[in-house]
Write a protein that binds this DNA or RNA. Structure first.
Lengths: 224, 224
DNA sequence: ATTTGCCTGTCACTTATTTGTCACAATAAA
DNA sequence: TTTATTGTGACAAATAAGTGACAGGCAAAT
């Protein structure tokens, strides 16, 4: 089994050591950086699978580091913050952070999130994605249900990709529109509904489904 | 301030009484079990915030109890053991214990660990919330009672979220209306009653309840 | 240039669910 | 008992989601 490389970027030494200890204990390879500059150096030299990133730091704060990395890579990023401000949270997600943990937190919680993100990204980065009996061959741009190829329009394909990246999460129409159509798309929210309808029809014989979450949007999941 | 419920499971009566005495002295609610079976009974009937669990016991040892509980819950567990074997320690953590205390230990040390664990678990994650045997998965927008998903309307869900954020507090209808319906909502106060009625019906099989506070409003709490 | 054949986004209409209010019953306090 | 407060069933209005239809867009083929 391949041990993922995790980069811990946190200026406060005591906390950093604790995090590192726990991660090593879980069998991860861990690299430490005590400021944003070193984190960036590390990141661009090494192959990193996940980054734990404090926001408040000397020499490039977490926001800057996050932004720089996001220009190059989709590596999962977990932000650590002292404040629990919702606005920070939102800002973090806009910059492309994948998750957000507020201090103080338990190691158990952090480990849970690390594992969850690694699991997801291991599903994503591969060029084959499996959801129930749906198989997506990213490189070939083909989709199969139980071995039989199905035919999707471009938008349907994009939508499916996005849904599969966010399996089991309730997704708002706004989000879907943002991510699939582009943040600058201005159009009817209900357009999403129509595309969901079309996609549903095409995957109806699969073991996956697009569940509607009333008042919110949709959730992609494997049938119970 | 809410007094956490602590379950002490230890067969040796003298030690158990001492632990209980100290915990009560610190203001905790304490329940006692002299063997693993009773501990499990307690746990699945009551709302327990933390468990102190001896390993060597008649009728289900600590390992078994820990395993059973972990299938249902993330409640903090502190294991007590006579041996200081590293292997036991590791085994304990693998089974999901949160902390580990070797006999003989000082009460001061045990209390410290209890408090540390409670502090952590009280601010665990924004995306999973546990109240008795109700589990709310915020990200997935799903609610479970003892592992079974239940179906809530949007308002019911919002109301439950708000109640769970303010567990054990008496909430006035005005407040609930403000926070759940929005400060600009003008409507009948008694609308809250109707929604409470509906939510009560859907969570009636859980270990949580919405208590009526006559003349004031409602209070969400775990059943005694 | 024109035709053909999808793809797409929007709209209108239908269907299903949710919601707020009311009237009356039940319950607790005085 | 009286009174105030809360519980509850019923129902109509409001909201949300599913869906078919359609017209414009776009690209490949003619």
């Amino acid at each position: 089994m391949y041990a993922p490389n995790i980069l811990v970027c946190e200026d406060e030494e005591r906390l950093r050591k604790i995090i590192v200890k726990y991660l090593i204990n879980e069998g991860f390879h861990v690299m430490e950086a005590e400021n944003g500059k070193k984190a960036l150096d590390f990141f661009f030299e090494q192959s990193i699978d996940l980054i734990i990133l404090d926001i408040m730091m000397p020499e490039y704060d977490g926001w800057s580091v996050c932004r720089s990395i996001r220009q190059e890579s989709d590596v999962p990023i977990i932000m650590l913050t002292a404040r629990s401000e919702e606005s920070d949270r939102v800002f973090g997600f806009e910059l492309g952070a994948d998750d957000y943990v507020t201090k103080p937190f338990s190691m158990k919680e952090l480990l849970m999130r690390v594992k969850a993100l690694l699991k997801r990204s291991s599903n994503i980065s591969q060029d084959e994605r499996v959801i129930g009996n749906i198989k997506i061959d990213i490189k070939a741009h083909k989709v199969f249900i139980g071995g039989n190829e199905i035919d999707l329009s471009p938008k349907e394909y994009d939508l499916l990709i996005y849904l599969s990246q966010n399996k089991d999460l309730a997704l708002m129409r706004e989000n879907i529109l943002d991510k699939v159509w582009g943040y600058d798309y201005y159009g009817d929210l209900r357009t999403v509904d129509t595309h969901v309808k079309r996609l549903r029809r095409k995957i109806q014989d699969s073991t996956a489904k697009i569940e509607t979450v009333r008042g919110v949007g949709y959730r992609f999941e494997v049938k119970a």
